[in-house]
Each structure stands twice: as C-alpha cells, then as structure tokens.
Design a protein around this nucleic acid. Structure first.
Length: 680
DNA sequence: CGGTTTTAAA
C-alpha cells in the first residue's frame, strides 16, 4: 500500500513507525509527515524509530523538532537508550543533560541515565540524577531503584546499595539479581548466596540472570560444594541453561580446580562461543596445565572460531607459564595483523615477554603503545624489576607520574620489589615513605614484605626488625619470612632463631617456609630443632622439593638437578664446574658454606655448593654457547646466597649475561618432577 | 508500553 494512504490513519501510521527499521522508508515517512504537518506525537515516534534504526543524528534533530510537546520524552528516551546500547554512555548522558525544558524526564529517562552512569562509573553524576528523580516523584519506582542499586553496587558503594534496597517497597527479580551480582563484585560471595536464599524465602523464583550471579558467587567462595548443588538445582528444575550460564559453570569448576568436571560440562555444551573456550583455557593454565590449555587453544581455532582478545589473553597467560615464547610471539604477530592493540592485550603480551625472559621485546612493544593505562605501566615496571633493572623501573615510574596517571598500591608493590631486587636501599626507603605520606596509600602486606626484604637483604636487619615491630597490623608469615631470610643471609642467628620459633608457632603449611626455618636452625647448629622441623615437614606430607634448573639451548630444554648424573655431558659439565671454581677463587670468591644446611665437613659443604643445580645448568650453558650470549636459567627454588655471588663471578669470567628466573609457576617442577616441555 | 540485571582475560 502506498505510504500516502497512511496519512488518514494516525494509529496505523504509528504502528508502521514503531515496526519500521529501514532507513529509506523512514526518510520517506519523514517527508510525508512534514508535508502533512503531522502531530508532535507522530514526530516523536519517528524520532524513536530513527534512534532504533541507529540514525542518531536524524533522531536528535527530529526529536528537537517535536520537543515542544510534552509527550516528546519518549523520543528522547529512545535516543538515550540507543546511545547507551551503542556503547557511548557519555553521549547518552550528554543528551539527558541537554533535554529541552519542555521535555519532562519520566521514569524511563531516569532509569536510562542512571544506567549510563553505571557504565561510566560516575557515582557523582548518578547522585545528582537520583536527586532529580526523587524530586520528580520517582523515589520508589522499581526501575529507577534497580538501576540506582546497580550503579552503587557496581562501583563499590555497597553500603548505599543496601540502604536503597532496604527501603524499596517492592522488589522483583531484577532487584534481587542486581544485589546478588553487586555483592559478588564487592567481594562478598557468601552474602550474595544469602541474598539468593532471602529471595527464595520471599517467594521469588530464580531466573537465569540470578543463577548466573549465584554461580559466580560459588566460584568466588572457593567452595565447589555449594556450586555443585546450584548446578544440580538448575538441572532438577529444568532451568534455562544457555551458553552464558553453562560457560559460567565451566568457569566455576575450572577456577576451583575441578578440571575434569569442567571438561565434562564443556563437552556437553551444545553451543560454545569464544568465551566458553576462553574460560576453559584460562582455568587450565591457572591450574598449572598450560600445555593442555594451549592444546585447547589450537582446538578452538580448528573448530572454526577466531580468537578474540579474551581468548588471546588466556593463551598468552599459558605461554608465560611454560615460557613458550615462540607461540607468544606468534600471538603478538596475530594481534598486529588482525586486531587493535588495546591496553589489555598489550599488558598480556608484555607480561608474557617478561615471564619468558625477553625484556627487550617487552620494552619495544611498550614504547609503541599510545594512551597507556595504569595497569600497562604497572606491568612494565614489574617487568623491569623481574629482570633486575631497578633503576629502569624507577625511571619508568617517574615518567608515568609525569603523564598524570596516579600510581596505585600495585604500582608501589612492583616498584618496591624492583628496588629491593636491585639493592637500591635508599630509593626503596624513600619511595615507601612517599607512598605513605605523599600518595596517601596505606601500606599493606606486600609493601611491608618488599620493604623488610629490601632492608634485610642489604644487611640492615635491625632496621627491618624495627619496621616489623612498628607495624600497625599483625605481621604475617610472609613478612616474618622476609626478615628471617635476611637473618640467615647476614648471620644474625640469634634474632633469626627467635623469629624461626615464632614462624613455627604460626604453623606454616608451606614447604618453602619450613625449609627456610630448618635452614636457619641448621646455620645456628641447633640440630635437634632441625630434625624437629624435618619431622614436621614429613608429617604434613610435604617432602623437600629438590632444587632444579632449566636452560634452553637451541630450542631444546635441558634440566639439571643437584647431584644428577644422567646428563650425557655430565663429565664435561663437572670439569667445567671445577674450572670455574678455580677461576673464581683466583678472583676472590670464597664459598659461603653457611648455605649448606647439613652437618658436614667444610670441604664436603664446598663441594655440595658447586653442585647446586643452577651451577650445573650454567656450566652446561657455557659449554654450548659462545661469549656474548645471554643465558636464561629457570629455577624452581630461590637462589642461595652463595650461588648469587658465584653467578656474578662467572658472568665476568665467561663474558655472558646470566639471568636466573624464578619458576614457581612452572608445573614441570611439581613434586620435583622436571619434564621437558613439548614445545621446544 | 518501555526502561533496570547478563559469562573470561592484564
């Protein structure tokens, strides 16, 4: 039917407008409305139709034309909603603020505006809108309240959210969902689960959105039993299990280490999207199965899905875990070819290079990223620290401050740790002080660990001890451990012993900590205490993990354990070790036998030191590379003070840069079993 | 009438 015939029938015309999405037809209707000097209502409908079709320019101009009539608010609402949907909440707020005086905002308008504030994280603007909504009489409106609730809950004002929630006269599913999700993001999963219970008591049936929040809560409680019962509930009640719900279930199981269940649920999914794969991949790599994670990453691609930035981040994480630079680099190239480098992606790639020992690649990428955000700076500062470049970390930190980005607690944790590892004591003290007094950041455990470590490492054990004593909070095991290893390295055995006693009382279940305690008693020659701790280690089922080092030479990974004679080049390696020992002594090296924690003859102790796994790995590296090469050793345990010294001498003798990286996250080292990576 | 809540990842 020709459009012209609609003119006589405004109701049909409005029907047509509300269902029409074709821009061409809308333009013709627009012309028609103008020539027939149509009513304001019709113009508003047209504006709303333009907004729905995505033509916001036309929508705004039409709405302005219709704005004199009070009913035009619907058109403005459509425009605000369209802006929000298209991902520009700022534009939505701009339209809201510029509403013509005649257009009186209604419940929908306030709801949309508050939702835009929530997307932007603008609590301040939200507060003002809430006040206007109350003045306009929407104080108890369920939609307005729900979006206000979401704004508060999402941005850490849980107290305000609860206040709003408590005085709401009526609550629907959305209200409850918002509270559940809000409590989860506020880090209070138990409270979230309780909120769900209250909802059921109130007689409200859960829908998929509420259940999603509950699943997240279960995931965060680290208590899979509740999670599994929720899963059972979903199945028993035949509730809707769409991709999102099922994906969250996979995530919950994977995050909590039930990888087989996660796999099974994943396998039963009828429809999987990139996120489904990503949660499985990140779950696998977080639980030390990086190789399997990367296998899934490949399977995802062969199943025809193109990885998005999230999937790539998960895969990069797995690459870092096993030091698989080759794949990491190819992901980097993939991003360069097909995607935009967002800060999130750049951070993940830089982190990968950092953990794989490639400082230069990390720096090169970092320098090319424009509009760096806080987390990207933090990652790069941490990267410098991990590579022993304390001064560079400090320079970066100062550059960051110049760009006007405010450092946060993580920045200082990275900075202090970098300064600590490079022995920059004065700078460390200075910046700790400035963090507290200038940046007004309250030091938490990790900061104290860094500071105490920094002082204790460089011999200022008493000063470190004073810091611990002056702490407001009760010192944690990690802080005592930092102090304790300082005592051990600096032969402050009397103080060390009292700390060891104290740490023991705190009942650490960590083997590393027990080993340190035992080592200190050994250094103090308290052999009865040593056997006591050794017994404790046995009783808790934890056996001492043998020291193990890895080195990659021309894409082959070689593993070395103390006193391991299985390597084909074993004899040559021992010869090299002896030769190095000789050269080092000529340069003034004195073996620090206090780092051998057995009751043995001095000479045997010296021999044992030179058989530490990193020494074997280095010797092997020297045999198979030429001067100027960079040797990256990956070790599962902390490098002892003696090896630390020895490495300095060896790098001078052999003219090679030697880097030892900590490999706590390498699953190859679990239970001391070192296996060769499949990727080398 | 509509409008509110919705999975991973640094």
């Amino acid at each position: 039917m020709p459009l012209l015939f609609y003119l006589d029938d405004p109701r049909r015309l409005r029907g047509l407008l509300s269902s029409c999405a074709a821009p061409r037809t809308l333009a013709r209707l627009h012309a028609l409305l103008i020539v027939s000097s149509a009513s304001h209502q019709l113009l508003s409908s047209l504006a709303a139709a333009y907004a729905r079709a995505g033509d916001l320019v036309a929508a705004e101009s039409t709405a302005t034309a219709a704005a004199t009539a009070s009913s035009s608010i619907a058109a403005w609402n459509a425009i605000i909603a369209a802006h929000s949907r298209r991902g520009s909440p700022a534009a939505a707020l701009r339209v809201f603020r510029a509403l013509p005086p005649a257009a009186r905002p209604d419940s929908t308008t306030f709801t949309l505006a508050l939702s835009a504030c929530a997307r932007l994280g603008d609590l301040h603007a939200g507060e003002a809108i809430k006040d206007r909504a109350c003045e306009a009489g929407y104080k108890d409106d369920i939609f307005v309240c729900s979006s206000l609730l979401h704004l508060y809950a999402r941005w850490g004002a849980m107290g305000d959210a609860v206040k709003v929630f408590d005085r709401m006269p009526r609550r629907d599913r959305v209200t409850w969902s918002t509270m559940v999700a809000g409590l989860v993001s506020a880090g209070d999963p138990l409270e979230a689960i309780d909120m769900y219970r209250r909802m059921r008591e109130d007689g409200v049936e859960g829908d998929d959105v509420v259940m999603l929040g509950v699943i997240q809560a279960c995931s965060a409680t680290r208590d899979v039993r509740i999670g599994a019962s929720v899963h059972g509930h979903l199945l028993r009640h035949g509730m809707r299990m769409d991709v999102v719900t099922t994906t969250s279930l996979v995530d919950m199981y994977a995050k909590n280490g039930l990888l087989d269940v996660a796999h099974r649920v994943f396998g039963l999914m009828v429809h999987r999207n990139v996120v489904s794969w990503s949660v499985l991949i990140s779950g696998l790599s977080q639980n030390g199965h990086a190789d399997e994670a990367l296998h899934m990453f490949r399977k995802m691609q062969t199943s025809g899905l193109l990885p998005d930035s999230g999937a790539l981040v998960s895969a990069l994480l797995a690459c870092s875990d096993i030091g698989y630079v080759k794949l990491g680099r190819s992901i980097h190239c993939f991003i360069l070819r097909r995607l935009e480098f967002t800060c999130i992606l750049a951070t993940a790639v830089i982190d990968m290079y950092s953990k794989c020992g490639s400082l230069t690649s990390a720096q090169m990428l970092f320098n090319r990223i424009g509009g760096k955000d806080l987390i990207l700076w933090n990652a790069m500062i941490a990267c410098c620290g991990a590579h022993g470049r304390g001064q560079d970390a400090l320079t970066l930190f100062q550059e960051m401050n110049k760009t006007g980005i405010r450092p946060d607690h993580a920045t200082f944790a990275s900075l202090l740790s970098a300064l600590s590892h490079s022995g920059l004591v004065e700078e460390g003290k200075l910046w700790f002080h400035r963090m507290v007094n200038y940046f007004k950041i309250k030091p938490v455990e990790k900061h104290y660990v860094c500071l105490v470590d920094l002082l204790a490492r460089s011999g200022l054990v008493e000063e470190a001890n004073a810091i611990v004593k002056s702490m407001e909070a009760v010192p944690t095991v990690a802080i005592w451990v930092a102090l304790l290893s300082g005592c051990l390295n600096n032969k402050k055995l009397e103080l060390g012993e009292s700390i060891a006693d104290h740490v023991l009382q705190l009942q650490p279940d960590d083997v590393g900590v027990l080993a340190l305690v035992s080592n200190l008693y050994a250094a103090a020659k308290k052999w009865d205490k040593v056997s006591e701790v050794r017994k404790l280690m046995k009783d808790t089922g934890s056996k001492k993990v043998p020291g193990c080092s890895l080195i990659d030479i021309s894409r082959t990974r070689h593993t070395f354990m103390m006193e391991d004679q299985s390597h084909p080049q074993h004899h040559e390696i021992l010869k090299m070790v002896a030769k190095l020992d000789f050269e080092m002594r000529k340069m003034g090296y004195v073996p620090r036998t206090e780092f051998v924690y057995h009751d043995l003859e001095e000479e045997v102790k010296e021999q044992l030191l030179s058989y530490h796994s990193e020494r074997l790995a280095i010797a092997f590296g020297l045999l198979n590379t030429s001067p100027g090469t960079r040797l990256v050793i990956i070790k599962n345990l902390r490098v002892c003070g003696d090896c630390h010294d020895a490495i300095k001498y060896i790098s001078r003798i052999a003219e090679r840069e030697i880097v030892v990286r900590d490999a706590k996250r390498f699953h190859h080292f679990k239970d001391g079993a070192c296996s060769c990576g499949d990727y080398w």
